[in-house]
């Protein structure tokens, strides 16, 4: 969570302009890794906009998350090409393997957080996953296991 001074500083860097809620939230998430509830409240108060509207922005876009995540973020592309090439099956398989219950996206040991992503635009390499920003194509169960071993 950021302190009030840090949030103030971010807001000031956008000229204190309430038009930039999306970009202010992007900056908070870049620093914290997610959007803590307290920081959303601060943004709402400092910009003098209703919390509901800030929350609306935070839940509208895919990039934002409201909960902390694991040490490594594993993103599965759910674009059309990845879907017809079976990324949904890989996703289910990995969730079962990691013992994630419905509604959970992070492993109990905080090692991995799993996310669905719309499309990385790497359709020719489908199915595609991304771990902490490194992108891997033509995935199979075996490759997935091997890749994830590299991220302790």
């Amino acid at each position: 969570m950021l302190s009030e001074d840090e949030v103030k500083e971010i807001i000031a860097s956008f000229g204190g302009d309430r038009r930039y809620v999306m970009r202010i939230l992007q900056e908070i998430q870049r620093r914290v890794g997610y959007l803590p509830k307290e920081n959303l409240k601060m943004v709402a108060e400092l910009l003098d906009v209703p919390l509901a509207k800030v929350y609306g922005v935070a839940t509208f876009f895919h990039q934002f998350r409201l909960r902390p995540h694991g040490r490594h973020i594993v993103q599965f592309c759910f674009g059309t090409a990845c879907y017809v090439k079976g990324n949904d099956k890989l996703w289910e398989w990995l969730r079962r393997k990691l013992g994630l219950k419905p509604g959970e996206d992070t492993t109990a040991d905080l090692r991995f957080t799993l996310q669905k992503v719309r499309c990385f635009g790497c359709c020719s390499m489908a199915p595609v996953i991304k771990v902490d920003g490194d992108i891997y194509g033509n995935m199979t169960k075996e490759k997935l296991e091997e890749v994830l071993r590299r991220y302790a």
Binding site: R18, R19, Y20, V21, M22, A52, V54, V57, F60
Partner: peptide, 14 residues
Amino acid sequence: AAIEGAATARGGRC
């Protein structure tokens, strides 16, 4: 709406 700034322009979202 997104470029203008979501929160003020059109009711919280784009």
